[in-house]
Design a protein around this nucleic acid. Structure first.
Lengths: 340, 340
DNA sequence: TTGTATGCGTTATCAG
DNA sequence: CTGATAACGCATACAA
């Protein structure tokens, strides 16, 4: 009927049904204490006017100020890890009628701060954060004000909050030891900026694996600050051109693994240079040779994160928890290539 | 300080600063007409109390009822296509200070209806929908009430709305013709339920490619209703056991391609059975042989979708647009294997 | 069983 | 420049 009319309100419905606004409220919220005849009349008016409940207004008036919203600030919702995490959160939130506001941080600290501010402004009931900042002191006031925050993949610094992380150090050490055990000594190490929590830990794990055997890695073979597959591909290509090229590669994140594999394939070396990657990804088993990886169970991480947050939403005020998930080595072939 | 206190409101700030609530409002919204000294005093009170603006209340009072929210109902935010789409939307929305509520439909019609209802209840300003329903008549009242809706990947039925889709029929025909041109005749066709818009079109394109050459595909080689990689893997394994197995495979969606490849690898047939998949995905070039696919440019689709929605949000009331994107054939190897 | 008055946190209006 | 008052759409307390 109407053209660009705004939505009908309870008042409109009340007028059409010839009842008070409060009665409409009762019908809409399926509260008891309304005569069937009246209920039917109101319902009809609701249908006629295409009335839709206004959750925002409702929540405003209701005490507690719950919005039924949670925020999820992840690294990049289009990468498989963040995406799988988001999906886990969604599944956990669905039953509670909670919706999810998601956004990507791309490792940009400013974006994190501005997005957190935006979410607070929208009065999210809780927040899942995979931080891009080094420290999160700025969150203290929000936490103090009662905002439940759960960190994923990286531990909080400067603020007390729950976290679900992976044993990056141990995982990396395990992956690199797997290569060392087969006789590799010239093992390249690809990681992102040392400022990034996980990248630093994994790099340290790489070094520790050597140390445990009383040896040291060649510094020339460590490349830091790699921001994506293209950078990893270029770095590996360069390493292969060295006088003494690496016989194996440890890649500190799945996108770097992908870039490294691409470089090896272009050089026809995928069957002769071993590679172990941190973080599994779809199709890692279909590459030739199938990729040996240190796997972090994303589904589990997501579920644990959701559980922690939901418990907080339900009023759990126990001290912050640090949940740490152990990664596992998935042997598929690429990591079992012997040194030349 | 406080323990589980609720957020400070403008009233609290006003009291602490010794001004009226309206003055606080002016400062918070950086409106002109406030003396610098007063502004500073208010700002200090804001900081002291950790006051945060309440966007919901603000929007309620402001006319128009804009929430600064858009909803994105996609097939599954954890699959690469939906995830990339979500990211495109996010990038487009960021500049406008618009946040995104995302959810996965998993091809479940009921979930679509209930989630749309939920989003309307939250007063999203616009909606991006990759429908799981066959018809969307139920959306008519929302559209009439002024909710801008843009369909992605699948065209609307029963409601007038913008859409961005891919030429599924032509794309499938192109992919299958590519196989036919190399002499393949026993070409398997893997698709999801015929009820699904894209699946049906792609299946039709497969048949059309044969027809164009005056021949007919063997019905035995068409498998419908495949709901994921595992189903595709099982189906292909079964097909390979036929007396006259297929010499090539056309897979109607990227997850089905993955399942099919897995089946071929397990049988050691990946170098002897050709395969062309619909929809590219990360790492398709790293599989051996690299996968020949019909690619739909997700970034472009996402941008077009966002552009359409944003234009509507900005008041564009022109008739609904149907934007159709042409897929391209990406030749990489798997589709160029000749028949035995 | 139904309705009236009041307030959630904010902004618009208009007066001081 | 600043503030009192009403109102956004709805729910709670309390009457009737």
């Amino acid at each position: 009927m109407s053209d660009q009319a705004s939505r009908a309100t309870m008042r409109d419905v009340a007028a059409l049904a010839g009842v008070s606004i409060k009665t409409v409220s009762r019908v809409v919220n399926t509260e008891p204490g309304v005569a069937d005849a009246v209920r039917a009349r109101v319902q009809e008016a609701v249908d006629r006017l295409d009335y839709r409940h206004h959750l925002g207004a409702s929540n405003l008036r209701r005490g507690g100020g719950r919005s039924g919203l949670i925020g999820a600030l992840l690294q990049d919702v289009s990468n498989s890890f963040s995406a799988a995490l988001l999906r886990s959160l969604e599944d956990a939130a669905r039953d509670r009628g909670t919706a999810i506001l998601s956004a990507s941080l791309d490792e940009e600290p400013d974006r994190e701060r501005s997005l957190v501010h935006d979410l607070v402004t929208r009065r999210v009931d809780g927040l899942v954060l995979m931080p891009s900042t080094d420290r999160q002191d700025y969150l203290a006031s929000e936490v103090r004000a009662g905002l439940p925050v759960v960190f994923v993949d990286r531990e909080p610094r400067g603020v007390a909050a729950d976290s679900v992380t992976v044993e990056n150090f141990e995982g990396a050490q395990m992956g690199v030891e797997h290569l060392l055990a087969q006789g590799h000594r010239r093992i390249a190490c690809l990681t992102d900026l040392a400022e990034i929590y996980t990248a630093r830990d994994r790099r340290d794990g790489y070094v520790a694996a050597f140390r445990a055997r009383g040896i040291r890695p060649d510094d020339q073979l460590s490349v830091l600050g790699l921001r994506g597959p293209a950078a990893a591909e270029a770095a590996v290509t360069h390493l292969l051109d060295l006088a003494k090229p690496p016989t194996a590669i440890f890649a500190g994140r799945n996108d770097l693994t992908q870039g490294a594999v691409r470089a090896l394939q272009r050089r026809g070396l995928s069957q002769s240079v071993a590679i172990v990657g941190f973080d599994d990804f779809p199709l890692a088993d279909l590459v030739t040779p199938a990729l040996t990886v240190v796997r972090q169970d994303v589904g589990r991480i997501g579920r644990l994160t959701a559980d922690l947050l939901m418990a907080r939403l339900d009023g759990d005020t126990s001290p912050p928890q640090r949940v740490v998930v152990e990664p596992t080595l998935v042997v598929r072939g690429s990591g079992e290539i012997p040194p030349a």
